[in-house]
Design a protein around this nucleic acid. Sequence first.
DNA 1: ATGGTTGGGGTCCAA
Length: 266
Amino acid sequence: MTQNLRIVSWNINSVRLRLATIERFLHDHSPDILCLQETKTMDEFFPREAIAAMGYPHQIFRGIKSYNGVAILSRLPLEEGESRHWYGREDARHVAARLMGVEIHNFYIPAGGDVADEESNPKFAHKLGFIREASDWFSDHRSRQDRMILVGDLNIAPMENDVWSHKYMSKIVSHTPIEIEHLARLQASVDFCDTMRHFVPATQKLYSWWSYRAKDWAEANRGLRLDHIWVTPPLVAGLQRGEIVAAMRGWESPSDHVPVVVDLKI
DNA sequence: ATGGTTGGGGTCCAA
C-alpha cells in the first residue's frame, strides 16, 4: 500500500515570532510533515498547542535558548527516531522521527562563520566536523536500502546554479569546494537523491535563501539553495513534485529562508 | 567596497 506524503523543510528563524506565517503556509500548502530549523526556543516555550490547533498534534522537537532548534510537526502519528549529538555538542541541530517505515532526519548544519579555514575558524571546523561525523554515522548505521528522508538547512549550496554567482561564491562560506566535497560525502553515504534537482535541471537557477541585508531581495536576487530534501533510493521512484516557495520571501516579516516542498509516495 | 538586516536576550552574538 502506498501513501501520498507532502513533506516540507523550512528554516523559520524563530518559531514563536512567525506563528501566523506558519499558519498561512499550512493553510495554503497542507503538508503532512513540516520540518523546521532555527526555532530558537527552549522546549518549554515551544508553541506546541498553537501548532496542534493548526492540525499538527504529533510533534518532536529539540530546542535550546536563543540558538538553533529543530522540530518535526505532523498530521500523522510519529515515533521518535534515532538521534544523537554531533561534534560533542548538545546544541539542538538534529531530530529524527519514524512514520510508516520511513525514517526522517531533520538537520540544521552549522553555518560555519566567515572564514573558510578549519585551523583559524572554529565555526568552520565545527561545520566540517559535524558533516564528517554525520557521514560516518549514515555509512556505519544505515544503508542505501533503508527508506529515509533527510531534510534541513544544510547551509551549503552544492551546485553552480544553486548560487547567484559560482565564481564569486566559490570563496564564500556556503559554496567553497571543501564544503561541497563534504556535502557530497554525506549525500553518497547512503546514496541520497537531491529531490529538487530530480525535478529541476541543473542548468536552472534555484534558491531557497536571500539575505536580509539586501535593499531589495528580489531585485538583487543574490540567492543560495541552502535548504534540501534528500531521499534514499527506495523512495526515488515515488517522487511526484517539488517546489521552493520563493514568493514567501516577499511576505510580511519573512524568514530569510523559504519552504522546500516535496510530494512523494511512500 | 567588506557595507547591509534580523532575531533573541539582555546592552552582543550568530546568521
